[in-house]
Design a protein around this nucleic acid. Structure first.
Lengths: 209, 209
DNA sequence: CTCTTTCTATGGTGATTGCCATAGTATGGC
DNA sequence: GCCATACTATGGCAATCACCATAGAAAGAG
């Protein structure tokens, strides 16, 4: 009977029959990938449908609100994944700020290398095309940053940082990560992540001796 | 006789009559502004021409290679301006790393506030749409980052940093600035720049006592 | 079987995209 | 007056954009 996963996100579908195909999930995954590589406006629905192998006839059945809805679900997935990664690293480095930061840089760098430096950050790409986004989508992008920062803040608190210092350090880390993605894509090298790691080492090596 | 400025950039035009109108320069300025707000693909030539007040009939006379050439000249202007700002701050804070960093954050934050958080960084916006860019344009974007980083590296060297530390610190600063722009646009607040400034203060206050 | 729901095929809409060919005007040098 | 250069107007190109109306297939529930 092949139970499909297809998380169906919180939008629409309060009940009804379970999914019968994975066309919907594949469309979201492909959209996320293309939006990260090319940007939102530069990616047409045609390309998403083609590359996902989804049938052309049922797009507006799965996504009645069109491209905007597709982007909403794509960013929901993206943010969820990003948060999971951060939580995981945080759990593995509890109480150790330096190790946490190093692992975050390392993980992001590895992700970029794995994609041959093609993938940008979906939140950043959408943020750079704000006028093309409706209020709902904009809000989700903003929330993605807030949520990410909160997790990191929480970790630093667990390292004994004062609340103020934990929060400003977390914000700085998020900003550095975003900028590093942009630069790494151009340089096609994880060098910028290593530079950030070095600077962090110097920072804590001196501050916490 | 109204001498026009119209810098004409290094592309095309090795000689010939001087410019007679400012339509060309205005098109470049408008393109830079719209690309920063909306992105490259999301900005149509129609909108650029309309908002710049330039005549519709002469666009391909001024820019024979079309939108790509327009973007090239826009980023040349943008990078030149950014470098001038950095050089200026560097000159005003010679030998003082902390003061330099603070002024850089302050200047970027003020620029964002002044535009009501509408403007992104042109280099970043273009970098997020790499597949839409030709090799020439991609190269210019990359050079913009390299040049910016070099100026900052130079300043840190002048503060007594070792070459390696000057260069990694400069790279980290550039990355943080880029990320901060993205976040500030979403939060509509210069808070992220203040967070970065605080973290920097802690860094140097401890490291250089 | 019937009925409901899920999903897809077809074929199209009008608008906008970047680009360009052709022709014509304006102006300054000689 | 003549001519070269700087610039503009007009009209249209093929392609793509997001979107949708209509119809029907597929399949599980009763």
């Amino acid at each position: 009977m092949a139970i499909t996963i297809a998380a169906s996100s919180e939008t629409d579908y309060v009940e009804g029959m379970p999914r019968k195909t994975d066309a919907r999930a594949r469309a979201i995954a492909t959209a996320q990938r293309l939006f990260r590589i090319q940007g939102y406006t530069a990616t047409g629905l045609t390309q998403i449908i083609e590359e996902s192998g989804a049938p052309k006839g049922s797009f507006y059945f799965h996504f009645p609100r069109g491209k905007a809805q597709l982007a909403e679900e794509a960013i929901d997935h993206y943010v969820a994944g990003r948060i999971a990664v951060l939580r995981n690293i945080s759990a593995n480095t509890a109480g150790d700020a330096l190790n946490f930061v190093q692992q975050v840089f390392g993980t992001f760098a590895a992700e970029m290398v794995a994609s041959d430096f093609q993938y940008g950050c979906l939140m950043q790409n959408l943020a750079n095309e704000l006028p093309a986004l409706d209020a709902e989508l904009t809000e989700r992008v903003a929330r993605g940053f807030v949520d990410s920062t909160e997790i990191i803040t929480e970790h630093f608190r667990g390292c004994g940082f004062t609340p103020a210092r934990a929060s400003s350090t977390a914000a700085a880390l998020v900003a550095a990560l975003e900028g590093a993605r942009t630069i790494a894509r151009l340089e096609r090298t994880p060098a910028i992540f290593e530079a950030l790691a070095e600077v962090s080492v110097q920072r804590w090596a001196v501050a916490e001796r």
